[in-house]
Design a protein around this nucleic acid. Structure first.
Length: 890
RNA sequence: GCCGGUGUGGCGGAAUGGUAGACGCGGCGGACUCAAAAUCCGCUGACAGCAAUGUCGUGUAGGUUCGAGUCCUAUCACCGGUACCA
């Protein structure tokens, strides 16, 4: 309201202002409507829920936010989807739990601490306070009594206890693995902190360095995680496919190669034993013990190993690197032919994956082919396909295709003539007999490294004793508290520099020992928070209440979490199950992955070619006479700015739109409505100020129509049998809409089309000018049902209008979802499209009961159809009931 | 590199093998107004035509089908993930 008045003041028209003030009692004012509804919900504790075995439960969960400082549109979109589903399910009569919490540990708090010289803890708590207020202003049906932040010790206590348990079970273990090392800051960098192989702050070239780290044995659950995907029909196929490929089950052979002059043989895994006779060398990772050993007496090799350790450790970076290698001067013996095979070190072989060594078959593997071509290593053809010519100077995809039914092994002695399966079998049997090989199922999935060399995380509850090794912190000493009141400079973790915290005595032998100073990966906290929501205040990790609420019925979050978070989350659930805490195999039955929120970018170029990004709120768009965008100018100076294209909302491109300012200007309901309307949930959503104005316009029109209708004197009972054709058709549209919206909200999650259908219905009811008693009764049915159907999306407006329509304030949340009146759906006339050879030529109207030939005859009688059929032979007529008639002519 | 996704009017999008462009935005025209804003009404894919209507049209090139935006093959562009951002 205020912004509106302010704009009137600017125009300086006193009379208009008075007119608006006089009207305002009837005008839609989001601020007051939303404040009143939110006050009511809060006073009534309307969304606090308890277990009720008599009622069907519905656990609606959104991915918990990282408290970065301010809510962004991605959050709004995510939580509005959850809220629509939660409110809709409640109207289906379910006992709905929708909780909220904070994923409060993590790297950004440390970066903010460096930048603003604050402690990560106080920065985080301040952000949580602010973002909670912002969330509350959006009117979500959240049970706030269950809220927690993962950095609270009564949360991470249970994580530490669980870790101790997993250590004892052998699921948690320590091994060496490679990290990004910044040699200047003497610190470990996250992958995102490595830019073009250099540290983001120091600019120094990053090195790969091996350090001891804690791991969870997710690989022991690989098969179960893979099989479990088949039990999740409510998950998107894309997510399940990505997880299947990530787990990467493959069937192959583990083969031992004796190495000349070495006692220890070399083991490789291959899925292509059929190409064994085509092996021309073996490639080893730089970190392989044999490579390390060889480097000791070969300075050139040592230099090469050091060289390929430069750069970061991310897979994307490693895979895009040029393939390089160096001969080690050692030879392995081919297990069948006895041939000498050179050993090479190669940068494309990773120590952390498989055995750290591969057998190279340049003739039938594209990467080996390129490597062999580059270093002049032999390329042997051992697979042939009839009709295809093999050319060892040019790679062709069929060389590596084991699935071709016409492929056969050649140049391989007794294996010749066999297909893939036969050759696999023969090689497996031969090697098994000689004790040089074994069949193996291999998974691409690697164990989960949970150690982070950082301060702002959950301390790993381990004491390192020089005599007893790694000793778990005894139960009575848990939690190991993270000191929160620290000075954080950035480079060294305060845990490492604080001797008081670090130095302890060993709980086993009592001698001087040190705490583990690493903290957990923050995926640890986000892997079990869903379960904690079910058991607020429990002294154990979860209690019996978990088995009322779990599994989660609907989980909603960004598609960027499709693999890592969602796989760890499923894994953790199985760990909780194996501890007897939960009783299902999977944590979530239905999953919805939402797309990003994107916006136009604008910039001006500086003299040095750098760009100043300008926020869309400060820019005016210019259009030509047809409405096409032709340019943009900065509002403040009227001078042109460049349009940079549509990108994900981000700080770096300055194209973020602040939800709070949108709520202040248009109201939470308009913001909610636009986020649900502008795109289907799983696709990206482009923010548009004009679009949200359209939503506010719709709400104002709806508001006015309901208020005008409510002023009518007492209405008669609706008599469906006495309606005229127009009234009947509107009522049919209403019930078709009830059917569609129910399906769109409940099953399809197509919020955008549900809203479009409601707008269409509203346009139709607006066109009904008939003020007869029965027309008013139909109008009332439409408007009242619309308030109910809009409630999940715009609950504040609905809360108010429900009362305007004469209902007590208390009843809307639990009002049953409107029922479809099947009788109202019946049509007596159907509109059909008539095609000739698949092209639309006419539309006809026929009785709903018309038989096939009657429909066909009506179609043939249509003048346009007659004209098209003149002089042609009808070959076939296809009649699809209620849809089309297709006449095929020759 | 690999895995997954997306591509439709001026724009966001709709169409679950059956009338391509619902709904919203923008634009154009009209009503109201001294005027403007707001509001209301109408039109709005391109081309040809007075019109009826016709031709073309869903990234590109093929294919399956009575019928393809939708299914298949190839290809291009963009987006997400790629194990230490969350």
């Amino acid at each position: 309201m205020l912004w509106f008045l302010a704009s009137v003041f600017r125009h300086g028209n006193k009379r208009t202002m008075q007119a608006i003030l006089a009207q305002s009692l009837n005008d839609y004012d989001p601020q007051s409507v939303e404040a009143a509804a939110q006050r009511y919900w809060s006073e009534q504790c309307a969304y606090e829920v308890k277990e009720d075995p008599a009622r069907q439960k519905f656990f609606c969960l959104c991915m918990l936010p990282y408290p970065s400082g301010a809510l962004h549109m991605g959050h709004v979109r995510n939580y509005t989807m959850g809220d629509v589903i939660a409110r809709f399910q409640r109207m289906q009569g379910k006992n709905v739990l929708q909780p909220m919490g904070w994923d409060a540990f993590g790297l950004p708090a440390e970066n903010a601490a460096i930048k603003h010289a604050t402690a990560p803890a106080s920065w985080t708590y301040a952000n949580i306070g602010h973002m909670r207020d912002q969330l509350k202003a959006l009117g979500y049906a959240i049970d706030w009594s269950r809220e927690f932040a993962t950095c609270q010790s009564d949360y991470y206590l249970h994580e530490q206890r669980m870790f101790v348990h997993l250590m004892k079970k052998g699921i948690a273990y320590r091994k060496h693995s490679v990290v990004n090392w910044d040699p200047v800051d003497q610190t470990v960098l996250a992958n995102e902190q490595v830019i073009d192989g250099c540290g983001w702050r120091t600019g120094a070239p990053v090195e790969q360095r091996e350090i001891p780290q804690w791991f969870l044995k997710i690989s022991a659950y690989a098969q179960e995680l893979l099989d479990g995907l088949d039990t999740l029909p409510g998950w998107p196929e894309a997510v399940k496919n990505m997880q299947r490929h990530w787990i990467g089950r493959s069937n192959g052979l583990k083969i031992s190669f004796a190495v000349e002059g070495e006692a220890q043989s070399l083991t490789v895994f291959t899925t292509r034993p059929d190409t064994l006779m085509g092996v021309s060398f073996l490639a080893l990772a730089a970190g392989h013990p044999l490579a390390q050993k060889a480097a000791v007496r070969d300075p050139r090799l040592a230099a090469f190993l050091a060289e390929i350790k430069r750069g970061g450790v991310s897979e994307a970076e490693l895979e895009k690197q040029e393939k390089r290698g160096m001969a080690m001067g050692l030879y392995a013996i081919h297990p069948l032919s006895g041939e000498k095979l050179p050993l090479w070190v190669a940068n494309f072989v990773l120590m952390g994956y498989g055995t750290g060594a591969v057998m190279a078959v340049p003739g039938h593997d594209e990467r080996d082919f390129e490597f062999a071509a580059r270093y002049g290593l032999p390329i042997k053809q051992v697979i042939a396909v009839a009709g295809e010519h093999y050319d060892s100077t040019r790679w062709q995809p069929w060389y590596a295709d084991k699935s071709r039914p016409d492929m056969q092994v050649i140049n391989s002695g007794e294996l010749d003539g066999k297909d893939y399966a036969q050759a696999f079998e023969a090689v497996a049997r031969l090697l098994e007999q000689r004790g040089m090989g074994a069949r193996q199922i291999h998974y691409r999935l690697r164990d989960w490294g949970v150690s982070r060399q950082r301060y702002w995380g959950c301390p790993i509850p381990v004491i390192r004793c020089p005599h007893c090794g790694d000793v778990p912190v005894p139960e009575k000493d848990l939690p190991v508290l993270l000191p929160e009141d620290v000075a954080f400079s950035g480079v060294r973790s305060p845990l490492k520099t604080d001797p008081q915290w670090r130095l302890v005595s060993c709980p086993v032998c009592g001698s001087a020992a040190e705490r583990e100073t690493d903290t957990f990966d923050t995926f640890m906290e986000s892997s079990w928070y869903y379960a904690r929501y079910t058991s607020p205040g429990a002294s154990t990790q979860v209690d019996a209440r978990a088995n009322y609420w779990l599994p989660v019925d609907q989980y909603i979050g960004g598609v960027e979490h499709a693999i890592l978070h969602l796989l760890y989350f499923r894994f953790y659930h199985k760990l909780l199950r194996d501890m007897g805490l939960v009783h299902t195999d999977e944590p979530v039955t239905r999953l919805l992955c939402q797309g990003m929120v994107i916006a136009e970018t604008f910039y001006r170029e500086n003299k040095d070619c750098s760009k100043d990004w300008i926020n869309p709120a400060k820019v005016d768009i210019q259009r030509d006479s047809k409405g096409r965008v032709v340019g943009a100018v900065l509002k403040s100076d009227g001078q042109p700015v460049k349009i940079g294209g549509i990108e994900k909302m981000s700080k770096s491109k300055n194209n973020g739109v602040d939800p709070q300012s949108m709520v202040a200007r248009y109201g939470a309901d308009a913001v909610r409505l636009f986020s649900m309307f502008a795109a289907p949930p799983e696709q990206s959503l482009e923010w548009s100020e004009a679009g949200i104005e359209g939503m506010a316009r719709f709400l104002r029109r709806f508001w006015r129509e309901v208020l005008a209708h409510a002023k009518q004197p007492a209405l008669p009972q609706l008599e469906p049998d006495q309606l005229d054709a127009v009234q009947k058709s509107l009522r049919r549209q209403l019930h078709e809409t009830i059917q569609k919206v129910g399906d769109d909200f409940g099953r399809r999650h197509a919020f955008n089309t549900a809203i479009a259908a409601l707008m269409e219905l509203f346009n139709a009811v607006n066109k009904l000018t008939d003020m007869s008693a029965q027309a008013c009764a139909v109008r009332r049915e439409v408007l009242e049902t619309m308030v109910l159907m809009l409630n999940p999306v715009v609950p504040h407006v609905s809360h108010h209008l429900w009362q305007v329509l004469g209902h007590p304030e208390s009843t809307l949340e639990d009002q049953p979802w409107p029922q479809v009146d099947q009788a109202a759906l019946v049509r007596d006339q159907l509109k059909l499209a008539v095609q000739i050879n698949g092209k639309l030529r006419a539309t006809i109207e026929v009785s709903a009961s018309a038989q096939q030939d009657e429909v066909e005859q009506t179609a043939r009688r249509h003048p346009n159809i007659k004209a098209f059929l003149a002089g042609k032979t009808v070959r076939r007529v296809i009649v699809v009931h209620g849809k089309i008639v297709n006449i095929v002519v020759g």
